[in-house]
Nucleic acid binder design. Sequence first.
RNA 1: GCCGGGGUAGCUCAGUCGGUAGAGCAGCUCACUCGUAAUGAGCAGGUCAGGGGUUCGAAUCCCCUCUCCGGCUCCA
Length: 669
Amino acid sequence: MSQQITVELPDGTSREYVSGTTPAEVAASIGTRLAQAAVAAKADGEWIDLARPLDHDVALQIVVPASDEGREVLRHSTAHVMAEAVTRLFPGAKVAIGPAIADGFYYDFDLPDGRTFSDDDLARIEDEMRAIVKADQRFERSELTYDDALALFADQPYKREIIEKVRSGAADAEDAGEAGGDGAAVSVYRNVVDGDVAFVDLCRGPHVPSTGKLGAFKLLKVAGAYWRGNEKGPMLQRIYGTAWESKAALAEHLHRLEEAERRDHRRLGVELDLFSFPEEIGSGLAVFHPKGALVRRIMEEYSRQRHEASDYQFVNSPHITKEGLFQTSGHLDWFADSMFPPMHLDEGGQDGAGTTYYLKPMNCPFHILIFKHRTRSYRELPQRFFEFGTVYRYEKSGVVHGLTRVRGLTQDDAHIFCTKEQMAGELSSLLDFVLDVLRDYGLDDFYLELSTKPPGKAAGTDEEWDEATEALRDAAQGKGLALVLDVGGGAFYGPKISVQAKDAIGRTWQMSTIQLDFQMPQRFDMQYVGADNERHRPVMIHRALFGSVERFFAVLVEHYAGAFPAWLAPVQVTVLPVSDRHDPYGFRIVDRLVAEGFRAEMVDGSSGQLGSRIRRAKTEKVPYILVVGDSDVDNGTVGVNARGSNDPERDVHVDAFVERLAAEVLEHR
RNA sequence: GCCGGGGUAGCUCAGUCGGUAGAGCAGCUCACUCGUAAUGAGCAGGUCAGGGGUUCGAAUCCCCUCUCCGGCUCCA
């Protein structure tokens, strides 16, 4: 008599089955639609295939495509299909790893004779993949001993390396994830069609039952990638693709990609005449044009106001310094490679040694020196120094990217020096301040990330790190935001909290960072005199709210798709007279607006017909276009075209418009 | 830095087999005087990223440098 097992379903109900029943059969017993949709299952939280027999009581979740888990399975299975297609089309290709990632998947290959993929290859591979999907190959799982697996993958060195690593116990989570198995064995998946094995891959699974379940996918791009992310290791060819539960979901995703491209700040920077990167200046060095500089100035001015109101003191420091400063801080130990090379001066001096200067890659040592300039009393703590400090970092050539990763940037940098007792309160109120200011720039969907001690690249003791990390965690909790752990992501001198913000199309950007630092105060031997008349070491908090002005600017451009809200828009109002007899009235409107402190300009009839002037102003994403004609001149009104509306408002009184614009600017709408 | 792909007018791009460069938009001039997303005509605009090589001849083929793009690695 066969044994019964109890299967608990996500809705809390339980059902009895004969031992050996598969998740596929469970799904079928619940409903045909579920059975048809199912791609995999989770048993007690563990991924399994639908065909894996259940032999004990279990909490079972049937995974369907239209879920995060389901898409992960689809993507991973699609990656296998891609690998099969590549090995068919490129005999001798070595396969590395091919996981599911956010929104898609990739697979790394090593092609014979150093061959590389072209865009045409991508199309061919996609065609081959469609054939494999059409053939509806079954994914069959089996477990092999290490020796059998090594033999099976005799001509796949990357797979063998993973197996060896797992066997020797040196595997990290990534390797273990690839190899599956249960410690004495590894699992492999065979793609079987008509009894023939078309492809086999080392894999933990799970996979869809057969390739026919796949189909809504697209290969996106080819890229180089290091084997195991090791800069010194071999460079593989990576193909990125995306896969979804339906054609509609795929189309939607591709549309999102287009939308992101449309918002690209590098493209809008040219279109809206905001900034550029003249080749003559050098890589990663931007110039801001009048309109971009205007937006930037407004951003900075508002930031200054807010900092002033929150008891920050403004300081300034030079762009270059003698090397000793960065030796003391430790930056030269960690970051000499990514600093602009030193300037050696006065080498003809008596001892011939001369002096070495560096461009500053950061501002903190300067602020420390300001603190240290005289004896500080506990009465003046916390001391908050703020500076728009321009720094230079020699970013590696391949990482420079628009305004988000540049070689010359301006940090809205502040350093707070306080007592240990003040630390908790200071961190908490700082976080409130940061979030509040970010909201004023139109960002309001946040989560926090806590980055801990970086292994092998950190100064200070574990005790100091633990203390600092816990202080940050305490500050982060209770803000009502999700807190995500970023293990090993801290700076060399301390852990950090970063504020991650979602933009208008749901992309996450790292915005502000708050770092707690017990190291610099020691290195620079900072002190204050306490109430007990003894000398104490202050705690130092590093923080940047924008991060860098350039980067924040880029995020705002992409967030707003170049359509800045009125308070930030370089031109708030464009006045268009219908014909040149309305010019004097148009100028009066512009004068009035400018007198009220708005940024208004007039485009008269000599630069085109009304339709073309309207078109241009709309292309420039001006918040308000005012059209003025005969009736407006007679009645003191304007025709208002608010950005985003295709419905012009006629006969709006000038006073009413001014009031409306003023309110909008004031409220940062 | 590494892998791959690019650089032709301000912008977007075409340019065949190696035979000294073309369009649209933008700009300028003139005409049009117009109520909501492109009026028309004309003009002007290029050391084909820079340097070297091959060739009778190079935007085109080769090499180097700069620079951009997609990734990887990195990001104080």
